[in-house]
Design a protein around this nucleic acid. Sequence first.
DNA 1: CATGAATGAGACTTCATTCAT
DNA 2: AATGAATGAAGTCTCATTCAT
Lengths: 211, 211, 211, 211
Amino acid sequence: MRTNIRSTGRDATFTETARRSQIVECAIETVCEFGYAGASLSRVAERAGISKGVITYHFASKAEILEEAVAVVFARGAEFAMRSGAFTGDSEPHDALRGYLESNLAYIAAHPREINAVVEITRGHRDADGRQVFGTAWEEREVLGLLEEIFREGQRLGHFRDFSPRVMAVAVRRVIDGFSFQVLAHPDTDVAAYTAEVVAMFEHATRAGTA
Amino acid sequence: MRTNIRSTGRDATFTETARRSQIVECAIETVCEFGYAGASLSRVAERAGISKGVITYHFASKAEILEEAVAVVFARGAEFAMRSGAFTGDSEPHDALRGYLESNLAYIAAHPREINAVVEITRGHRDADGRQVFGTAWEEREVLGLLEEIFREGQRLGHFRDFSPRVMAVAVRRVIDGFSFQVLAHPDTDVAAYTAEVVAMFEHATRAGTA
Amino acid sequence: MRTNIRSTGRDATFTETARRSQIVECAIETVCEFGYAGASLSRVAERAGISKGVITYHFASKAEILEEAVAVVFARGAEFAMRSGAFTGDSEPHDALRGYLESNLAYIAAHPREINAVVEITRGHRDADGRQVFGTAWEEREVLGLLEEIFREGQRLGHFRDFSPRVMAVAVRRVIDGFSFQVLAHPDTDVAAYTAEVVAMFEHATRAGTA
Amino acid sequence: MRTNIRSTGRDATFTETARRSQIVECAIETVCEFGYAGASLSRVAERAGISKGVITYHFASKAEILEEAVAVVFARGAEFAMRSGAFTGDSEPHDALRGYLESNLAYIAAHPREINAVVEITRGHRDADGRQVFGTAWEEREVLGLLEEIFREGQRLGHFRDFSPRVMAVAVRRVIDGFSFQVLAHPDTDVAAYTAEVVAMFEHATRAGTA
DNA sequence: CATGAATGAGACTTCATTCAT
DNA sequence: AATGAATGAAGTCTCATTCAT
């Protein structure tokens, strides 16, 4: 995804890209440390060791930074999932669910601060009218769809019991999203054990033939 | 619980109690509408139809209002659970879990705005040093303990399979906390059906003897 | 000096007098502790253990309290000087100066907090236009006159050398006023020794026949 | 003395230096006119013809402005004393004392408003805990030391009589500090005459061989 | 006589944004 | 490409004063 700057039509230069990236990373760190409400551009600039002017030169607004941060982290998570081979596309549904959980939790364990920041941003960020930018509609569109698809396929094949794919998808996402708090609060968390617990929980919760 | 005002030792008057209550309610509404970061005292005062000065007359700080809001909603939720007879104390663990889920979800369905506000506050509120006031330590102490106790008892009796009570407790809380978003985003949600889904999910997730 | 309250024409009752007195004393203490700028009516009320309303019931304004505080402390100091027999009216000038210094310093040593408060008030208190209420004109009228009189008499008798009575009077007052800082900062100050030093200083400074 | 801005390590620019200087000067004027308690940032900004935001852009806090004002005036006074050749280092003590008095009073006569402001600030300024920032300890360290040194040397040489250097030093400072009031209240004061009076006073007060 | 309640002005400070260089 | 400078709105909070009870 090439980013055009300030609608001049030209492509971003190397410096431009590097600066934007640096600012986004510092914004992520700042949100993680001070929370959404405490993440001012001053603090971001201070962390980056640059002046506030640099930020507003490269970004039209604070919102643009936060929204890019969310996009960047999502892209990284997706790439991580891809590389980890979690999704081969035609996986058996139980495997797909396990893969989804494992790759998500593994990514969070490796990058808890950026996930925490994204959770803060998606919860806290609002437009001028006070409406959440990353609200329920956004989550249903961007996040829950894939999970629901897995569940529906599993039910079609009879591997999963009959439950609401939407409700189960929401539950999975809530549990995954909360993992960053766990890792940040308890850095010595046994990730493998925690992951096994979560996988077992949802396998029991979804498996057919036991009702 | 009598509230003494401003360490004068004097008991709160009727007006005092009513005003504090009104302000807390308006703060809850404002947080729900504008989020933690957008809930300024100006907006709270505006909603209450009073001047900003009234707020600072009755509360020493904004933090005091938010913390009282959390306490008030928790107290209401606990009273609701008590009245609904969800906990008879010696319930069979499966029943205790179901009761916990049902009373929590029922309360949220009836009061989604205040629960949403509390979730916002507990996530967003920080002290002067930037540390979360209602952080992980608070949650483990105030919220997760009861659930873990239920799970441990169920495991001791052999009704629950062998899983981490902590991980399961966290999962339950995340799912419950997220329900306010669902109700607010989709006011026509079939609460009974949603509750049944969640209960079934955790019954399958916890039940012994099927692995 | 009887004080009529709120121009009702009637005399102050016992309660009235006691309350005013209590408030003035608390105001003095508060000014001493927090300085002129930090002495709010809230803090005065808090120290007195009463509500702010009581204060504004008994005094028309904050200024009235401060001005009464100054008057009260001056009256006490004058009474102290009288009782200590410092001024017999027809004292020899050197004795009069010594008596003035000794009684002033003795009073300050015994009541450093109220003197400190008065110094704060006379320095800091201004009317609505920003003009000092206890400015230079006030000081010349209320404070310096007596000293100048002593000096002029001493010069007439030839006991004092020829110097400016005004300049010497100002010097004496500055040194006296500053003594409260000394006593408060070093409570173990040897008052007798300090007083002897000051008396000697001004005796040398004023004495005739040695130039 | 280069001033680094906001710990970015960057040196102050010309504009920065000029603005800080302008703001400090306006603060001094405002304190002189309205007193410590009446010197709000609004009034400082108004006098400077700038917005309040400019002030907080260049200074981290109001305290920083006031403390810089004190430092600036002290530095100017010291430079003035140096240039006036008051201190040749090896002066005879009587000359040193006279030089100290003359240079101080001359500076005050030339800049009574800034001295008055500094006296206001040193008396009134307190930290968050209510403690004086420029309290007795500060004065003993920064101000009285030099005078005491002169007195001790004079006593060692037998030029001064036996008195407490500390008490005499305090007296000298009080008299000097009070001169700004005199000049402001009576702009037509004959400075040379007043200075001669003060010099004579302390020469008589300190001279040996007449007790 | 007392006071709880309310108010509105104004305090200091933080902030996102704009702009000239 | 960068940034120092400036702004004005809005933030929380303190304060002296007024008023009904």
